[in-house]
Computed example of a mutant assay.
Amino acid sequence: MPMFPQTRPRRLRLSKAIRDLVAETSISVNDLIMPIFVKDDIENPEPIDAMPGYYRYPVKDVVKIVGEALEHGIKAFLLFGVPKPEKKDHTGTPAYDPNGPVPQAIRLIRKEFGWEPLIFTDVCICGYTSHGHCGIPVEKHGRTLIDNDSTLDVIAKMAVVHAEAGADFVAPSGMMDGMVAAIREALDEEGYSEVGIMSYAIKYASGFYGPFREAADSAPRFGDRRSYQMDPRNAMEALKEALLDIEEGADILMVKPALAYLDVIRLIKENYPHYPLAAYNVSGEYSMVKAAAEKGWIDEKLVTFEILTAIKRAGADIIITYHAMDVAKWLREGYSPF
């Protein structure tokens, strides 16, 4: 149905006030979670070559970047730990070190800002292992396989350590079977029933993760992750994966990546409308925008808002994005893209 009767002459351009009034989708800082990379034993922020404008931060500087984000209205953060290479081992034991980069950062944030920031933490061992896989490899029947059950023990310990430090939500990303149930049981047993789980319920084996793997030093040293991440050709499988995590106690579901899987975001939202849904606007999506903008090929602000609007329009309630700080600054400056 037309916005105005068809018998009335059309304006060449509706006024912005009218378009804003009837806009179906809008982006605000309240929609966003900002990822932060925290690295062991560095003195100054390290630029990430594959992610222009993004950094790995020393633990001591996390308070500064969180404080800046809070000033711009960002309230939620997702922390990733980057341990020293020599600390990594086959089973990822540094992942549950209480003095690892993420637990240290959480404690500093809580000391400085109390419970104002909403802190999510990534719970996966890929960045903490010598092999770079999300599960523990074992040799069995002449093949190298991922041992799902022993991996669950490690990520459950990791989740408890993050909860003890002050995390609000833990976010298991390894796509191990039963990961949500294992973490929920461990948190409840240790008295952290109030800590939520944002599950990477639908995570595809994607080519869009490359820049992140550089940032977190988490690329697999052999093979790939196709045996435990989803096939990009499958959409209906996502319904099964989401239902399993719901039954195991997930509080928030996630689709990752976002931009190439808008149909999956819509599918999950239509079938599980009462569950909060996050979408991860991943590193490759971010870096493509930055690279094209640096070449002068696109309008960075406009394209960024167009992408985030598409993700939200598809059905995401929450968007995890490396554009968060830029978007917050642009909005504060009064930028209006459409």
Rank of each mutant, 00 (worst) to 15 (best):
F37C: 11
V38E: 03
V38S: 07
K39S: 12
K39V: 13
D41T: 13
D41L: 12
I42A: 07
E43L: 13
N44I: 14
E46C: 08
P47G: 04
I48D: 04
D49M: 12
D49Q: 13
A50I: 02
A50R: 14
M51G: 05
M51E: 02
P52K: 01
G53Y: 06
G53E: 09
Y55V: 09
Y55H: 15
R56T: 11
R56V: 11
Y57S: 06
P58Q: 09
V59K: 02
V59F: 11
K60I: 11
D61I: 05
D61Y: 13
V62L: 06
V62A: 09
V63Y: 05
V63W: 08
V63Q: 04
V63E: 03
V66R: 00
G67R: 06
E68G: 02
E68Y: 11
A69N: 04
A69R: 02
E71N: 13
E71Y: 11
H72W: 12
G73H: 01
I74C: 00
I74F: 04
I74E: 00
K75D: 08
A76G: 02
F77S: 00
F77I: 00
L79I: 02
L79Y: 06
G81N: 06
P83L: 04
P85Y: 08
K87L: 14
K87G: 10
K88I: 09
K88Q: 12
D89F: 09
D89H: 10
H90C: 02
T91A: 11
T91S: 11
G92P: 03
G92Y: 05
P94Q: 09
P94R: 10
A95E: 01
A95T: 10
Y96Q: 01
D97G: 05
D97Q: 06
P98F: 08
P98A: 06
P98D: 02
N99D: 14
N99W: 11
G100R: 03
G100M: 10
P101G: 05
P101C: 06
V102I: 13
V102S: 03
P103G: 07
P103V: 08
Q104N: 12
Q104V: 07
A105I: 10
A105D: 02
A105T: 05
A105W: 02
I106E: 04
I106R: 01
R107I: 03
L108K: 15
L108T: 07
